[in-house]
Design a protein around this nucleic acid. Structure first.
Lengths: 261, 261
DNA sequence: TGCTAGAGTTAGGTTCCCCTAACTAATCTG
DNA sequence: CAGATTAGTTAGGGGAACCTAACTCTAGCA
């Protein structure tokens, strides 16, 4: 009787691959594969070059040999281009899958924060697990419930359903010119303790900040944070880790944002 | 540097076992284990005797030999009592874990239906995946957002955080005496098509129904469904599958419900 | 009471995804 | 440009969770 599920990729025991598909068909990816694609996308994005094996390994907290093995599989699945000893680059199909995961992750973060009252330093860990289990319908319903937000609680832009990501020019607070006033665009979401600290300084997306001084040799920054009303304008001294996690809007030309597939 | 996660049960690639724990400590269970425990609990509950290997296999759509293998593991983990060729019974610790899963599943179903507008025939599949990925905090926040509901959208009672399940006496509509009026308590949640059909008859938890006639040999039932206002009181003929999926409140003594650990 | 149907088990795979140890290619530096 | 350092790979495992084929109980019945 029970025509056992023709187990495609023995997803039993994995992230629950039920009825979610790649962008337009394609067999469901395992949770691990999804994690790799997301990590590779982010690495390519931030370094503007092929993602390195060791970088992927460190990001996913997995040994380099394991990564090499997975890269071959992903290459066979045509999700990325792999050449031994070089790095990897996502193919169009891989990038699509990665952007889908990015959307899921960020929609979930936004929903947890806005609809369920999660503090912003805890949404990341929860989203990291839910992003593999949620159906596309759930993601869409959550996005709709929030009125289709453009960014997650940390300021990262949310790709649209069709895989479009609006890239706003940003730069690290660490690179910001002294004396220039700028708007905080985003804060890296992975370190919960850092997020709690940053929040205690009243720094969050939208806050106006000005770098008053920068100590040499990657030293601490003195930052003025615009407060509201009474106790406005506080100054703080922050280390380079924080200065690299906080992104401010780059003042570039006011071109309303570029678009990447 | 990266002190790789001392991988306890190599949950990598599985249901995402991050930071969720058994009721009071105990190492995190894999998604598969959680599924087995839930299935075994339900089988024990409905048959009032040890769960049979084949019954578990059929419920989980897994081959019997695979089940045997898992039962040994679960037995070694002291989650259940296993004796070859007999069946299995959950230990206190196993039952606790099962009730925790039941709570997660039902809270998620309730949340999807009430907060996100899911139709009641689709919440089961979604919950089936999310229940392994959600943290206890998320479950509690969802329950709180709904005002701590007592039942899921199908009428099944939701165990409390401390593992208490209020058992309301129920019986299948199929067993209901002819002529007696009764309140629908619950409808089995697994078959989406059946749920859609039942809903089309205006049968849902709370509906008042009366069995007008029962054909012999497990034959169809003629049921009167109390409608509201205008088009009230419709009669329908339903088959035995439906009659067994619909549960009505048993008229027993009005003892306000028994409690099971 | 012996026999057999079906329930349950053992035996022997497979896939996914991870690991350590040991080797090789690339790159950086004196 | 050789030699060392670091990045990346191959080799060889292991556990979780599944499968099929073939065997062994258990229990119901003539």
């Amino acid at each position: 009787m029970s025509t056992r599920k023709t187990s495609r990729p023995a997803e039993r025991g994995h992230s629950g691959g039920g009825d979610r598909y790649g962008a337009e068909a394609g067999e469901p990816l395992t949770g691990s594969v999804e994690d790799y694609l997301k990590a590779i996308y982010e690495l390519e994005e931030m370094t503007s070059r092929p993602a390195a094996t060791n970088a992927i390994a460190e990001r996913l907290d997995i040994s380099p040999p394991s990564v090499t093995g997975m890269l071959r599989r992903l290459s066979a699945l045509e999700l990325l281009t792999y050449e031994r000893y070089k790095g990897v680059s996502l193919t169009a199909s891989g990038r699509r899958a990665a952007l889908r995961m990015l959307r899921r992750h960020r929609v979930i973060e936004a929903y947890l924060a806005d609809a369920l009252g999660y503090p912003w330093d805890r949404v990341h860990a929860e989203a990291e697990r839910l992003e593999h289990a949620a159906s596309d319908e759930l993601i869409d319903r959550m996005a709709a419930a929030l009125g289709h937000p453009a960014t997650d609680p940390h300021g990262a832009p949310i790709p649209t359903r069709d895989g479009t990501l609006v890239l706003v020019p940003r730069q690290m607070l660490a690179e910001q010119a002294v004396g220039k006033r700028a708007r905080v665009a985003a804060v890296g979401d992975e370190d919960g303790a850092l997020l709690r600290y940053v929040a205690s300084l009243a720094i969050k997306p939208g806050t106006m900040v000005t770098v008053l001084a920068r100590a040499p040799f990657d030293g601490p920054l003195t930052v003025e944070v615009a407060g509201k009303g009474a106790k406005a304008r506080r100054t703080h001294v922050v280390g380079s880790t924080v200065a690299r996690a906080v992104m401010v809007e780059a003042p570039k030309k006011p071109s309303p944002g570029e678009v990447a597939t």
